[in-house]
Design a protein around this nucleic acid. Structure first.
Length: 959
RNA sequence: GGGCGGUUAGCUCAGCUGGUAGAGCAUCUCGUUUACACCGAGAGGGUCAGCGGUUCGAACCCGUUACCGCCCACCA
């Protein structure tokens, strides 16, 4: 016999192990079955399971378990992502905390990378174990890691091909530089935040002491200010960048500066001459209308600098400290941190008297013009430091080219976003796509398969500077690389391949013959998203032509949150189409974000993060999963509260006890089919048709990714229909002396419970599996795990309209009597006589059939049909029948009257409204006939009810 | 600035094709009747953000205003 409650802490690990040991998570590989594949968005190997994962993984598991039960050949491909920066950061932090004087720098690349691998083997992928606690049924035997051997091969192969097609190239461009991690990061990893800042106004003196008349006019063209100036005012929020200015730009229509466009100014501190240029970029209304142009440290300025061919002078090193790499930074600032340099530059400008000064109109006191201002500043989303736009050499993917088919695939409906709105976001990004910077100056990741040697065309540059004049060889293996190099330098040239250091060469000057060349591999690694972009096919064995690739690609659906549409979805589309010629998945289901109960994003720093593992400990995985599914409506975010999880745990307990009731009553599972037509008892016919309806609804909802509707339908069926009504309605049958009735009911109840377990299984795998097994004890031997049973497909034969009508009537009558009793204050324990008055033959038959259960559930002494309202009875109305209850001596008659009056009043209001509606010729004429008819019936009903209620009211008067 | 979404019961939200406004939680009343108090029965609670329009009929469609979110791009 079952205990009174389900114990998840005992059952969950036991069941999970049993499933895994039995290989339940593996695809059937049945070639006759339709393949169904989902690749998991690989969590970071450093990750711990948070609520976002819990939702994401639950929804995928619901789909996976559902489709597996539907007989498809199901693969859920799991794995983790190497997460370049995040992982490197974890290991660096550990080194720092260990206090052993070891650091990334002291260890060197090779040793450091070894340590990261060691960390990965030991503590990485903790999330996998946590996922198992959630009950997810991914095929762990196929678990992959973005840096494992096969995936690394795929990465190299893709890189080489794109390079050879010139879709990957090297370029010197402005990138977002993270001075903390000392690497380039992508636009998407930058978060713009508003912070307190200031705007300084500097005077740049005109060269040669030239002057001009600076005139400001109001809208009417009247002069409001006029001054002779030998300087131009510029405003900046980042004074330190002035050292790299290449020009001052003004708008071509700005009359104030028209006289000096084309003249030169002498850049203070740097002591260089720079021109005043006209460009559309400056906004005359903002600041002074004149903008300093720092091509190497600002994205907008960079555009201007490119248009005008201005020099772009880099001012900082990789740490964000001032540096004279391009010879622009005066010695006194070299080595200063950029923020220290900012202060120094401002101080020096003030000292030079080159601040624009404001004069206090009253005291005449002069102060430098420094405005406090909210400014938008870019921050690295991992490091949290201010990002520096920096001009560096990087590797780029021509994303624009790859985006075209990716865009078309969605536009043409090969891949659908669900909800469809997200396609707009996707298009919008692809339509404005920038070159994708894929190189990262990190050590943890896929090292770029490019080696450089001397370029004969630029051999001077090469020997002068190890960072320029290089010829790149891109290859996916050493053999291939050596061959490429020999093809280039000559077959007799000795090729040496080095991991780091400097490349070098030996060449016979007279003949130009290369004797020996040392090629050095690029130090950079690839953006983590480069390997993630290949995930849908690399995990299936690509570039090998594997059976799995053939079978499971393209995947059925990608399930993810909207925040990685750009990072990941778009890039998988690009790479999938490019390398397989097919879309990577047919649907992209975008689910909500999980927020706290107040609707705020959960975060550790806010302290409002809920830990899914805590919730699982306390309420069980099923409760958490069911909560997630029930709340996963489209479009909206999910506000998760512990209370909600508790409520769903209670639902599990309810189910458990319903099963216990079945067990007590020997309602064995029944391994046969059931159809309503074969059954004798309306209540059994009815529940079978209700089961079919619940499955039909849940199936349709799951097919449409409406998890909330599917879970809601199951919840409602189980709690309201099965527990609240069916189990109560069959109690008399189970206790009856009629063996045939008892047997049928036991079987139908057992069968229904089995169907419930299947229906709930995708959402609540543990409790359902546990019950499935427990119930086997008394019934026929179960054939394997519940999770591998067939999801039933009920055809139209499962409806039982007559039985449904009959049961609806009985349920309605019970409800009506209960409501009346409660309203009138009849003591709950009192058993009262009830009579249906004027009942027609159908109702009398129904009453005789269900009288016992009606009496039981409505606490009646007797339930009869009578010709007239018995003496001393108080009537209510159900349908068009008066229901007489002998309760006059138990209640306050005045209250009973009031109740009737209220109901009559309500009905009369309805009648007035309906009369008016039906009296409207337009309505009769234009509304569909069935709507008109419906309204007529409603009117007739209401009138009849008023009549009956009024009669009851009159009878009351006479008491 | 561009885009997307939201505003419905005290709270969180459903409401699909326009046809009598719903659920869960919370609240109140009653109740231990042999599955379940993590329970059961019953009840109260709404100007569907405002305004205008289309329509026989609008929570739903259109326009507009207000407020609240989020995303993208941003003024040096």
């Amino acid at each position: 016999m079952l205990n009174s409650r389900f114990d998840p802490t005992d059952a969950e690990p036991r069941l999970y192990k049993a499933w895994e040991d039995a290989g339940c998570f593996k695809p059937s590989m049945d070639t006759a079955a339709e393949p169904y594949c989902i690749v998991i968005p690989p969590p970071n190997v450093t990750g711990v399971l948070h609520m976002g994962h819990a939702l994401n993984h639950t929804l995928q598991d619901v789909l996976i378990r559902f489709e597996r039960m539907r007989g498809k050949n199901v693969l859920w491909q799991p794995g983790t992502d190497h997460a370049g920066i995040a992982t490197q950061m974890v290991v660096e932090r550990q080194l720092a905390e260990a206090g052993s004087n070891e650091s990334r720098a002291s260890l060197g690349r090779e040793e450091f990378t070894k340590r990261v691998w060691a960390w990965k083997e030991e503590s990485g992928g903790a999330i996998v174990g946590q996922d198992k606690r959630l009950g997810i049924s991914a095929d762990w035997s196929r678990e992959r890691f973005t840096m494992d051997e096969g995936l690394s091969e795929a990465v190299k192969k893709v890189f080489v091909q794109l390079y050879n097609e010139k879709l990957i190239y090297r370029d010197k461009r402005l990138v977002n530089w993270d001075p903390h991690f000392q690497t380039a990061i992508s636009d998407l990893e930058v978060e713009n935040k508003e912070v307190d800042g200031a705007m300084w106004h500097f005077k740049y003196p005109l060269e040669g002491g030239e002057t001009y008349t600076y005139v400001e006019k109001d809208e009417g063209g009247n002069v409001v200010f006029e001054e002779e100036r030998d300087w131009i005012s510029i405003a900046t929020t980042r004074p330190e960048t002035m050292l790299g200015d290449g020009a001052v730009a003004v708008h071509p229509d700005d009359e104030r500066y028209a006289p000096i466009v084309g003249k030169m100014v002498r850049l203070p501190l740097a002591d260089r001459l720079i021109p005043i240029i006209a460009d559309e970029y400056p906004d005359p209304e903002f600041g002074s209308g004149a903008v300093k142009i720092t091509g190497a440290h600002d994205f907008n300025d960079n555009q201007v600098a490119k248009r005008h061919g201005l020099p772009m002078l880099r001012l900082m090193d990789e740490r964000g400290c001032m540096s004279d790499v391009d010879g622009a930074v005066p010695e006194k600032y070299v080595g200063m941190d950029r923020f220290a340099a900012r202060k120094a530059v401002v101080d020096d400008i003030i000292a030079l008297g080159l601040m624009v000064m404001d004069t206090d109109p009253e005291t005449g006191e002069e102060t430098p013009r420094i405005e406090d201002k909210k400014i938008m500043q870019p921050f690295g989303d991992r490091s949290g430091v201010v990002i520096e736009p920096m001009l560096t050499d990087q590797w780029f993917v021509n994303a624009e080219e790859l985006a075209k088919p990716a865009r078309a695939a969605v536009a043409d409906g090969l891949t659908d976003f669900i909800p469809a709105n997200w396609a707009k976001t996707y298009f919008n990004w692809l339509d404005n796509i920038e070159p994708w910077c894929i190189s990262r100056q990190l050590w943890w990741g896929h090292r770029i398969p490019a080696w450089s040697g001397p370029d004969p065309e630029r051999i001077e540059e090469f020997t002068d500077n190890p960072f320029t004049g290089r010829k790149y060889f891109v290859a996916s293996s050493f053999e291939e690389l050596a061959q490429l190099a020999k093809d280039f330098y000559g077959q007799n040239c000795e090729i040496e391949i080095a991991d780091e250091g400097l490349s070098s060469f030996t060449r016979v000057p007279a003949t130009g013959e290369w004797k020996k060349v040392r090629l050095v591999q690029e130090p950079d690694v690839l953006d983590t998203w480069f390997s993630s972009a290949l995930w849908p096919f690399s995990t299936l064995g690509w570039p090998e032509k594997t059976e799995e690739l053939d079978m499971f690609y393209p995947g059925a659906v990608l399930v993810t949150a909207f925040d990685i549409i750009f990072f990941w979805v778009a890039r998988m589309m690009m790479m999938g189409l490019k390398f397989t010629g097919e879309i990577p998945f047919k649907h992209v289901y975008i689910h909500a974000l999980v927020l706290d109960a107040k609707g705020q994003k959960m975060s550790k720093s806010k302290g409002n993060a809920m830990d899914p593992l805590d919730l699982i400990d306390q309420y069980g995985a099923d409760a958490l999963r069911f909560t997630m599914a029930r709340m996963a409506g489209m479009g909206r975010n999910i506000r998760l509260s512990e209370q909600a999880v508790e409520g769903n745990r209670n639902f599990g307990t309810k189910l458990w006890n319903a099963a216990r009731f079945c067990q007590m009553n020997e309602c064995a599972n029944w391994d046969g089919e059931v159809e309503p037509a074969e059954l004798k008892h309306p209540v059994n016919q009815w529940i079978v048709s209700e089961v079919a309806a619940a499955f039909t609804e849940a199936t349709a909802a799951l097919e449409a990714y409406r998890f909330d509707d599917a879970a809601g339908a199951a919840y409602k069926f189980v709690w309201n229909t099965f527990c609240d009504w069916y189990l109560e309605l069959i109690k008399p049958l189970l206790n009856s002396q009629d063996d045939e009735a008892k047997a049928e009911t036991r079987r139908v109840a057992g069968w229904t419970l089995d169907q419930i377990l299947k229906l709930l299984h995708p959402f609540m795998p543990f409790i359902t599996e546990e019950l499935w097994e427990a119930l086997s004890e008394h019934g026929p031997k179960r054939d394997g795990f519940l999770m591998l049973q067939d999801w039933p497909d009920f055809g139209p034969g499962y409806t039982a309209p007559e039985a449904s009508e009959e049961m609806d009537w009985a349920i309605g009558l019970i409800t009506e009597i209960r409501s009346t009793r409660s309203d009138l204050g009849v003591p709950a324990g009192a058993k009262v006589p009830m009579a249906l008055v004027d009942a027609d033959k159908t109702l009398r038959v129904r009453l005789s059939r269900h009288g016992e259960v009606i009496a039981r559930l409505a606490r009646l002494e007797t339930a009869r049909a009578e010709a007239e309202t018995p003496e001393g009875a108080i009537s209510t109305v159900f349908g068009d029948t008066a229901v007489a209850l002998k309760i006059a001596d138990l209640i306050d008659v005045a209250e009973a009257k009031a109740r009737l009056d209220k109901e009559i009043k309500g009905l009369e209001k309805d009648i007035t409204g309906l009369d008016k509606k039906l009296g409207n010729a337009n309505f009769i004429e234009r509304a569909p006939a069935e709507v008109v008819e419906e309204n007529r019936e409603r009117l007739a009903d209401s009138k009849l009810r008023v009549e009956k209620l009024s009669a009851a009211r009159t009878a009351l008067e006479q008491l």
